[in-house]
């Protein structure tokens, strides 16, 4: 009884935090998105929809938005292909090994993302190590400033977000089920595909969401590794706020639009998952 009465009170600090640092900034952004930009980047507080009309311009949709969706999807697939075997491997190690291996997965987080992207910058540049490795074979590698360079940086940066939820579900999995499957005559592939994989779906779903959504709005990796040649909506929004144009209302409208797009994608995603009976 007593702990129940305490329950709602325990929520307070968290709620307050969310209110001040999530809801309030969001409200400010939404109100700026309806304001008007005055010459010199000043803001006039009115109610206008013209920012949204401009944000829907094919100019932004065809290039940056389409590119962001495409790259976010590729990043998610890339993280899954690399992350699933890794998470599976870690989950099958003895417990004391798992802690160490998991620590290694999150180790890069101890360094700032910007610094790590700069490291890739140095690896991928035309006179960098990767280019030097393939040069003897007569290949000119121009990864920096190409979508592939950006993809490498994104997969690298977001891999842990895929590995961790996958590990969490795989670790709890009862692997005696595999033995049971074998006993019933399943091949290794069948026991994986029909037993393990379906049971790890919650992890796959969570990992995909944790990778796809932040990558959709990512601007740091594409800006540095893409060299301004790989358009993504995150860069376009950032330039409205910090670039020479100083069009905060347009940037805010784009940001709100991106949020709506993400919600839309999520709703569709869950609908499809339901149809495929991946979630109940």
């Amino acid at each position: 009884m007593r702990s129940n009465a305490l329950g709602p009170k325990l929520l307070l600090p968290g709620l307050l935090w969310l209110l001040v640092f999530v809801v309030l900034p969001l409200l400010i952004m939404v109100s700026i998105s309806f304001a008007r930009r005055l010459p010199g980047g000043l803001i006039e507080w009115t109610f206008t929809l013209e920012n949204y009309a401009r944000a829907l311009d094919a100019l932004y949709l065809v290039g940056p938005v389409a590119n962001s969706l495409w790259l976010a999807a590729l990043t998610t697939v890339g993280c899954f292909v690399l992350g699933y075997p890794l998470a599976y491997y870690i989950a099958r190690r003895p417990p004391r090994w798992r802690a160490l291996l998991l620590f290694l997965v999150v180790l890069p987080f101890l360094t700032n993302f910007l610094v790590r992207i700069y490291a890739w910058f140095i690896l991928l540049r035309p006179e960098g190590w990767i280019a030097a490795l393939v040069k003897p074979f007569g290949v000119e590698m121009a990864l920096l400033g190409s979508p592939w360079g950006v993809l490498i940086g994104l997969v690298y940066g977001y891999l842990p977000f895929m590995v961790l939820p996958l590990y969490a579900t795989l670790e709890k999995l009862d692997f005696t089920l595999v033995e049971a499957a074998h006993d019933l005559g399943a091949t290794r592939w069948q026991s994986f595909w029909r037993v393990i994989f379906p049971l790890s779906r919650p992890g796959v779903i969570a990992g995909a969401i944790l990778v796809f959504i932040p990558v959709l709005g990512e601007f740091l990796a594409p800006k540095l590794l893409g060299g301004g040649k790989v358009p993504m909506i995150g860069i376009t929004i950032e330039e409205q706020f910090l670039g020479r144009v100083q069009n905060w209302p347009l940037g805010a409208a784009m940001a709100v639009g991106l949020m709506l797009l993400v919600s839309l994608v999520l709703v569709r995603y869950f609908k499809q998952l339901k149809e495929a009976r991946w979630v109940s």
Binding site: R125, P126, E127, A142, L144, G145, G227, G228, K229
Partner: peptide, 15 residues
Amino acid sequence: LARYDSETYDDFLLT
């Protein structure tokens, strides 16, 4: 172009 760049082009010329 290799890139649009306002910050690191001088270093890249040197390297």
